[in-house]
């Protein structure tokens, strides 16, 4: 074939010709610094995309964005019926309604982020194969969407907390760093499952089980003291490091007056929360970036 030389005039091989004119390999992964810079330039796209997704997801429902609040509320009502009334968890917990809704809303933030994160790449292949942008935009947009959702839920949560007789204290301000740390944690985790989900499409089927097990291990529905009472010592120690348990506990401490911590000390709880945010945030970002050039393949 005549294809050995790219340019008959100069007698160069394709690679040499490309190098001479400064061409780069198509779809090459940028360095982590350059990638972060790109991502920063695409911040408007991330927020626009997050907002668009939020609008689009409710565009066919008649109640529209009201579902943003109605869904977690309905969930809370169902769980209250079962765990509060039938299983009588409310006996051990002073303000069970507030305890339950705090746990549910905080857990829901991570749960939905992770659920949608598995589809961040595989569900957007059309977009990925059509346009060039740093792919981390997609999982980050999911986190941003869920963060907006959470803000709506928190307004409802605060109303519930006050309505069930909790005082408004300065401790409420602690909710802000707690939620921010959780958001970083979520972003990292969403990026991890996004990359995993891009290759292993089975992840979508397995995720509901993982998330349900995680929910039961995070003391969302019942008193966290049950862990200490019924589990062997080492298992309780493991549960204490469960990031979701930690984020939920921090939210509960800030909002509720009488609540127990599974961890003995509050500073330690904060440290665990910070550690998980740093680990998941940085680790997830690096892990996602390393797969950048593969995402179009599907």
């Amino acid at each position: 074939m005549a294809n050995l030389l790219a340019d008959p005039d100069s007698g160069l091989t394709p690679a040499q010709l490309a190098a001479r004119h400064g061409l780069r390999v198509a779809g090459e992964r940028p360095s982590i610094g350059a990638y972060s810079g790109q991502l920063w330039r695409y911040r408007h796209f991330i927020s626009a995309y997050a907002h668009a997704k939020l609008t689009a997801s409710f565009s066919n429902a008649r109640l529209g964005q009201l579902w943003q609040v109605l869904t977690p509320l309905t969930n809370a009502a169902v769980y209250f019926l079962i765990f509060g009334l039938v299983l009588e968890q409310s006996r051990n917990i002073p303000n069970f309604i507030a305890y339950l809704t705090t746990g549910l809303f905080i857990f829901n933030f991570t749960q939905v982020s992770v659920q949608q994160g598995t589809q961040a790449i595989s569900g957007n292949l059309g977009l990925i194969r059509a346009l060039h942008f740093p792919r981390a935009c997609l999982p980050l947009a999911i986190t941003a969407t869920q963060f907006q959702q959470l803000l709506g839920s928190i307004v409802v949560l605060l109303a519930i907390v006050v309505a069930t007789g909790e005082p408004i204290t300065l401790m409420w301000l602690m909710l802000v760093p707690a939620v921010l740390l959780q958001t970083v944690f979520n972003a990292g985790l969403t990026m991890v499952v996004a990359r995993l989900g891009a290759k292993a499409t089975d992840l979508k089927q397995v995720m509901p089980f993982v998330l349900r097990a995680w929910m039961y291990g995070s003391g969302v529905l019942y008193s966290v003291n049950l862990f200490a009472e019924n589990l062997p010592g080492w298992a309780t120690a493991v549960v204490q490091f469960n990031p979701m348990l930690v984020y939920i506990e921090l939210a509960r401490i800030s909002l509720l007056e009488n609540t127990h911590l599974l961890n003995d000390s509050l500073p330690l709880t904060w440290l665990i929360a910070l550690g998980w945010a740093a680990l998941a945030g940085l680790g997830g970002y690096l892990y996602f970036w390393r797969g950048e050039q593969e995402y179009g393949r599907g």
């Binding site: 394709p14 400064g22 780069r24 390999v25 997704k53 957007n124 990925i128 194969r129």
Partner: peptide, 28 residues
């Protein structure tokens, strides 16, 4: 060529960032 699908073997070199515009470019 657009760098959206990685090549299994061989190489594609481009100047700048090529833009693909196709009918199946999925929007919302």
């Amino acid at each position: 060529i657009a760098g959206l699908l990685p090549v299994e073997q061989g190489a594609v070199y481009t100047q700048g960032q090529p833009s693909l515009l196709g009918v199946n470019a999925a929007l919302l």
